[in-house]
Design a protein around this nucleic acid. Structure first.
Lengths: 249, 249
DNA sequence: TAGTGGTCTAGACCACCCG
DNA sequence: GGGTGGTCTAGACCACTAA
């Protein structure tokens, strides 16, 4: 035979199904439109529901679909471009940004965070939980870890449960903003939503997340570490390195 | 009852299984060690194989495990830190970088790429396929799209099939490097491996990928667009904004 | 209460790798 | 050829949403 290329990949059912659905989404559906339910779709294509679901999962991962239990499957809008570059949010809690303080705790950080602090120690840190809301939608859940010495004027006593927990958080952010920021490191990797993130972002636990870890440097030391998880289905992270021409959206 | 918090989340089996396995990985397994096979694990935990696989999939997504058909499931090493910041690779094809040219074509770009070019048109572009190899491992597959006017000295005739396709690619990269780069845009989002990417990176089609889209600006215009897909399971993308203190690894 | 997506089961067969 | 992970099936039940 004249097969110039050995394909070697006997296209699987769900893969083929995915491309068929993808084409159909481009040509026959509008954003927000609801698809037939999974049982109906599976029957129409003559496959088991699990197989159909494998295709839908991929499309959801790629931001093409949105599925909500009890509601249905809808065509997703294009991903939201979210700026995480060094220009915006030079400091966490930058005035006018779209972060909302959710809570505060004084506790030892997880091992993954302790590892990127100079002091590898497991000392309790100011831990601020925040949510980023863009275009009216929550897109990210953040935990901001601030070593006690970074903000010496803030009390490091256990917060009084009777107090508003957000008050201490605001105090930490205010003191941070007083420091002269020398630079920041950023890393992006794939992760999945913990139970708290999931609640905050209206997703199920385990949903795919883009985890952005930022180190804030002051006087050559790490003054704070932020671990922000962005909804991977709905977000595109943009890094505008001070350029005047941002990507569309 | 004294339940101060209504959990509302009746922990699912695979979620619980995932945490159990995760703890076991931390305490009882070394990097590279092979786990018992899926049927054995499922039996040991008293669940169906599909349920066990749901837990393994999550752990693989988080970079904790590595699974290879015909071989087995092994404990993954920590993710590789890959620099995609503006300092490195100021231009694609930067001497001494770890990109390898794989092929060349002259064809119209996909809609997603055409959208970020000034000329939204569907003209044929120089299309260079490359692979990034770091620490001996292929970590990314890239398609670099260069509008013909960006490198006017390079022939825009269909390449002679008898020629080495990589020759034209090198020519394009060489001419690009002559231009004065004014800036670059970068965006990161979640995607999945197309068939060609999968082959290039030794993964199955559909594997989760971090898609980095970069626009290279010259004289206020987009001189090239790169779409690089990084293995999400093994990579952590780092953005060192010219800072002297990079993240470890 | 009816209908949706999410979880789970117990099987089967297939593609791939290695000895 | 024997063992691995990858795909697929045909069911069942559960959690959630909205009318």
């Amino acid at each position: 035979m004249g097969t110039t290329q050995v394909e070697g990949v006997p296209e699987t059912k769900y893969w083929h199904l995915k491309t068929v659905l993808s084409d159909a989404l481009d040509s026959e559906f509008a954003v927000g439109e609801v698809l037939p339910n999974e049982r109906a779709l599976a029957a129409r294509f003559g496959v088991a529901r699990a197989t159909l679901r494998q295709a839908l999962e991929q499309l959801e991962l790629e931001g093409r679909l949105q599925r909500r239990r009890g509601v249905g499957t809808t065509v997703a809008p294009p991903r939201i471009g979210v700026d995480v570059g060094p220009t915006e949010h030079s400091w966490p809690g930058f005035m006018g940004d779209d972060w909302q303080t959710e809570g505060y705790a004084l506790e030892a950080p997880p091992a993954s965070v302790a590892r990127v602090l100079d002091t590898g120690g497991a000392d309790p840190l100011h831990t601020v939980r925040r949510t980023r809301v863009t275009h009216g939608q929550p897109v990210a859940a953040e935990l901001l870890y601030v070593p006690v010495p970074s903000v010496p004027t803030v009390s490091s006593a256990p917060p009084d449960p009777a107090d508003d927990p957000a008050a201490r958080a605001r105090e930490v952010l205010r003191e941070l903003r007083r420091l002269r920021l020398e630079g920041q490191d950023r890393a992006v990797e794939l992760g999945s939503a913990r139970a708290e993130d999931a609640r905050q972002l209206d997703r199920l636990p385990g949903a795919p997340m883009l985890v952005v870890t930022t180190r804030y440097l002051v006087s050559g030391r790490v003054a704070a570490v932020s671990s922000a998880t962005y909804r991977a289905d709905t977000c595109r992270l943009t890094f505008t390195d001070g350029q005047p021409v941002p990507l569309a959206n």
